[in-house]
Design a protein around this nucleic acid. Structure first.
Lengths: 343, 343
DNA sequence: CTGAAAGCGCTTACAG
DNA sequence: CTGAAAGCGCTTACAG
């Protein structure tokens, strides 16, 4: 392996100068001639940086960890794009980890908790913020930013206005003339397996709040039996629709709190012989590519996930540089309704 | 930050012993009593490994880079699961990178090409193996394994029997009585923007081969105009179906060489007023969750992507340890037909 | 404009 | 069973 020392020897300068040529220095000034010689030798001998050595010396790795549940969820795709773009702009590289895999003793958790490998972490929690792995992460000295969720502890967070998103969806259905609107999703009510900390309104509950606000604003009292608990799997939509169809007295429209589930909802409704949107209208919260390709195309509320990822990563980079960063709701762009064929 | 040296001082032993307690050593033996004291101090002072220092010393980072086009493609989900599982078993951690982002000068490429950060790379190429970034990666001394594709250069590869997958799909349609079967996908024929190297049959062309083999085995001469070039985007399926519907003389069944596209194909067919499968039968190559949730549910050939990722990662780990690994087609499990409602 | 030297924290052959 | 010492490759205050 070619080292700085070898380049220095070949170019007839000191390692100091090589290092300065490679990425500048406040203390060292290099003449154009020297710089050219060094660069030529770097090229000729095929020098590449040893990042382990650099990290050890500078106490910076240039790596950000991104932890999320089910990274393959298409909802995260634009968020990851935003994270990548901001990371590149700020000189960082991304290490991705599934939250589910961060069990005690996993290699990845070891690295996030250790030194010299990860400068900071973006954590997109699932409803349960309180796994042992996550808790130890929050105790680490390296900065953590909670993304797409609100945290009532001291960790800084950046979230979308989820209540507004559900309001936009519900208002759209109200405008289409519906008065009996259901809200379908996971981890919502008394049957949820996840128990939020006392007084803490997690992402799904904040959306539920928005849905209820919109109904009340239209003079409709929300009904608890129109809040339909389901799972997050794609198949959960089909299961839920089967239950809904069996009801004698049922909603004529649904706000579906999960883009993937909405595909199953519409698929299940059609299989059950319902006409969509005539017998059942559907709006998904979150837009994903496939919603525009199924038949009928599914209406959705676009969430600013790219912007969330981009702004969040920039905030984390600032935290790493020592700034104290504020927790906040992403101001713009607001959630936006995309009307398609299911409403 | 707590260091090995500090633990040693607190426990009244040398750094040598601390290191040996933390992860064994061929040369150093430690008594149970000493071990207990060291571990107690590690716990008490909250020691965590500095991975930069370890990597520098051992010349191993324990990090594998995984490079693929569009990681969010659901087709890759099980492959990434397999990679993660095998990595964990072998003591590695994964760094994910989008191939498209590995442009010249990107931070991530820099790291893959440098030392001390990445021990080896799994490369799932897109049809064009020849980007500048990829080429320089193949020139690096750190091992590279090409996954889910065949490479005619010296890089070792592990691939699925893609011809067999297309054969299975085509044979199923033949059994259902179809005699006019089309093959729809990207980068197939003379109109493809990608030009494979002379004599090189890339993944899509190998599937095309399998489709033709199955037709010929049934005594049907493949027709060039039944090979329908499309894009990989989900919307490409809708566009392609519009073109197909417009034909006076058209296939009654399609093998769709892309799971996401197949959703658009079925959606577009329904929007165009076709009955699926009566007017148009569809089989996708690759099974993804959503195919089982749309209406009608889409038939597919399951590809062993989890196994591909798992075996491939194990091979790469062996290559890193100095073994010469053979290029091969994954022997089992074979591609398997999942019959649903579109055939 | 350039060089000599120290040191980041770890692991490991070697000596006892 | 344990310790002293070297060194991985880099960057950086400091001296000139």
């Amino acid at each position: 392996m070619v080292t700085v020392k070898e380049i220095a020897a070949a170019a007839g300068v000191s390692p100091t100068v090589v290092s300065a040529v490679l990425h500048g220095s406040r203390h060292v000034r290099v003449s154009e001639a020297t710089r050219a010689v060094v660069l030529a030798k770097v090229e000729e001998l095929g020098y590449t940086t040893n990042f382990a050595a650099r990290s050890l010396r500078t106490a910076r790795s240039g790596v950000l960890a991104v932890v999320a549940p089910k990274l393959s969820n298409p909802v995260f795709t634009p968020m990851l794009d935003g994270i990548h773009d901001a990371a590149e702009e700020r000189g960082y590289v991304i290490m991705l980890a599934e939250a589910m895999r961060l069990v005690d003793g996993s290699r990845m958790l070891e690295r996030i908790l250790g030194h010299g490998q990860v400068d900071g972490t973006i954590l997109r929690p699932s409803a349960d913020l309180d796994s042992a792995g996550v808790r130890s992460m929050l105790r680490r000295e390296a900065p953590v930013l909670v993304l797409d969720e609100v945290d009532d502890r001291t960790t800084p967070w950046l979230a979308i206005d989820d209540a507004a998103a559900a309001r936009v969806a519900t208002e759209h259905l109200l405008e289409r003339g519906h008065t009996r609107i259901g809200f379908l999703g996971g981890w919502l009510g008394p049957h949820a397996t996840f128990r939020p900390r006392k007084g803490f309104r997690h992402i799904n509950l904040r959306r539920l709040d928005g849905y209820r606000q919109a109904l009340r604003a239209a003079g409709i009292e929300p009904r608890d039996d129109d809040v339909i608990e389901s799972d997050f799997a794609a198949s959960a939509g089909r299961d839920a629709v089967e239950r809904i169809v069996a009801l004698r007295d049922r909603p004529t429209a649904l706000v579906v709190n999960n883009a993937t589930t909405s595909v199953g909802v519409v698929g299940g409704a059609i299989t059950a012989g319902l006409r969509v949107p005539d017998d059942l209208a559907v709006v998904a919260i979150h837009d994903i590519d496939v919603l525009a390709d199924v038949a009928p195309r599914i209406s959705a509320v676009r969430m600013p996930m790219y912007e969330l990822g981009h702004v969040g990563t920039t905030l984390l980079a600032r935290a790493i540089e020592g700034e104290t960063i504020p927790s906040q709701v992403l101001a713009s762009p607001p959630p936006e309704l995309l009307r398609r064929e299911t409403t």
